[in-house]
Structure formats: structure tokens, C-alpha cells
């Protein structure tokens, strides 16, 4: 199939960018979206032109590296997928497809479609962990965890940190990401000792990074490749308010 790409091209951070058009010709319909970009890039490279810079790694939807806003949808059309799990069969012959990077103050563009998501790492650094040194653990079965709690913790922990929630939110809010980690750890008995300090520290860092505020519209949930629920955001709010009230 043949499609036309309109791609955000930006040579470096803090430099102006603009849209450029690229034809994508003779793309097999079974190819994935990123394989289509590979084909286009290989063509560009063989002509000595700079390829379209985009991030991708595992190409099976788990590492969270890839992320392109495709025709206005983070990770493109389709439910619960990452960009690398999008296939060309989702498009039609002759389509013009617009590719934009994640847009957020906290995610500066590094080049073309590549953004810097280090803000997420810094939020985790602020407290998204259980403080236990290697070697301190007791026997794994010494601490039973109710299956329901464990399952809910796992639901939240499934977050891949891709940033689609921020990209989808009209306020570029990171609440879904933060709530997933806070929920994961708050639901488990191991996470209790730092439960109050953790949520406050993570929210403080989140605010510092320049993410917007949550306005409860659930657009993050709709675009999340792992379908992390906004119920986690409610839990985050509750955890935060209780932490503020009780400490």
C-alpha cells in the first residue's frame, strides 16, 4: 500500500520544528507501523538523507520506549496498544498520516519524534520504591498477601512508563503514571511503612516537573496501552489527602 506521512521534524532540542511530508510506497499491508517507518528510513538513508528519528526498542509492547501521536492519537488508532503494536492494516491506501511527538513541557523533544521522559524517572526517584537493601528480605511466603490486593497491585504495576497518558491528557498531566506506582506499592503490605511519605514526595516531584493538573476526563485511561484504570488516580488522591491529614 501507499500512504503519505506528515512528520514533525525538529533537528535538536530548543530548535524550531515543522512538518515535512514523506511518501511511504509499496508498504506490505501486514507490516507494522514501525516497520513501515523502517522502510521509509532505509530509503532515505540509501539516498544519504537523514532518517526520521523515532524511539523504539522491544517492539512487543512492553518496554515503553516507542510513542508517537498518530493522527491525533497517542500510539495511534486502536485500543490498548503501543505504537509498535500498530499495524498498517489499520490504515487505508492513500491515507495521509500525521506523526507528532509526545507534547508536554515535561517531555522536551530531543529530535523529530524522540522526546526526553526523564521526568518520569525523577518522579520514581522521589519515592517510587520500597526501601529494602539487598539481603534484608524475609522468606517470601512469610508475608501472605490477599490475592485481590496482589492482583490489583499487579494491574497498577503493569504500567510501562511510555508517557501516553501525558500525551493524551489535554493538560499533559502525569497523574495516571504516578497513581499506578503509588497504587502498586500502597496496595501491598510491603509498601506500608513508606506509604505516607512516598505519595507526598512523588506528587511534589511531579509538580516540579511541570506536568499539568488532572481534570478527571479519563483520556489517559482511554489511550493507556496497559489499560491502567483512573481508579488509581482516585486512590492517589485519597492517599495524598490522607497523608497530608494524618502526618
Amino acid at each position: 500500500m501507499n500512504v503519505t506521512l506528515r512528520v514533525w521534524k525538529q533537528p535538536a532540542p530548543n530548535q524550531p520544528g515543522r512538518f515535512e511530508s514523506y511518501p511511504a510506497k509499496d508498504i506490505p499491508a501486514e507490516a507494522s507501523f514501525l516497520e513501515m517507518l523502517d522502510i521509509v528510513n532505509n530509503q532515505l538513508e540509501s539516498e544519504g538523507k537523514e532518517p526520521i528519528a523515532f524511539d523504539s526498542d522491544c517492539r512487543e509492547g512492553i518496554c515503553g520506549t516507542c510513542g508517537i501521536v498518530i493522527d491525533g492519537r497517542p500510539h495511534g488508532p486502536g485500543k490498548a496498544i503501543t505504537t509498535c503494536q500498530l499495524y498498517m492494516r489499520a490504515f487505508n491506501e492513500g491515507d495521509t498520516i500525521t506523526l507528532e511527538p509526545w507534547r508536554a513541557k515535561a517531555f522536551p523533544v530531543l529530535k523529530d519524534l524522540v522526546v526526553d521522559r526523564a521526568a518520569f524517572d525523577r518522579v520514581i526517584q522521589a519515592g517510587g520504591y520500597i526501601s529494602i537493601n539487598t539481603g534484608n528480605a524475609c522468606d517470601a511466603n512469610a508475608l501472605p498477601v490477599a490475592k485481590l490486593d496482589s492482583d490489583r497491585a499487579m494491574d497498577a504495576a503493569a504500567c510501562i512508563g511510555c508517557g501516553a497518558c501525558v500525551a493524551a491528557c489535554k493538560n499533559a498531566s502525569a497523574m495516571l503514571f504516578v497513581s499506578a506506582k503509588v497504587s502498586h506499592l500502597a496496595l501491598l503490605p510491603q509498601g506500608q511503612p513508606e506509604r505516607r511519605t512516598r505519595v507526598v514526595a512523588m506528587i511534589e516531584q511531579m509538580d516540579k516537573e511541570g506536568f499539568g493538573n488532572c481534570t478527571n476526563e479519563s483520556e489517559c485511561e482511554a489511550e493507556c496501552p496497559k489499560e491502567i484504570s483512573v481508579a488509581n488516580i482516585a486512590r492517589l488522591n485519597r492517599e495524598f489527602l490522607l497523608a497530608k491529614l494524618l502526618t
Binding site: F19, V69, G72, K105, N171, A172, G212, E219
Partner: peptide, 12 residues
């Protein structure tokens, strides 16, 4: 929080 807007943005 989003100084550069999207050109195309659709609701989920």
C-alpha cells in the same frame, strides 16, 4: 504544561 500544541489531536 503543553507549550507547543498538537496539530491534530483527537479524543480517546
Amino acid at each position: 504544561a503543553r507549550p507547543v500544541p498538537y496539530e491534530t489531536k483527537q479524543s480517546g
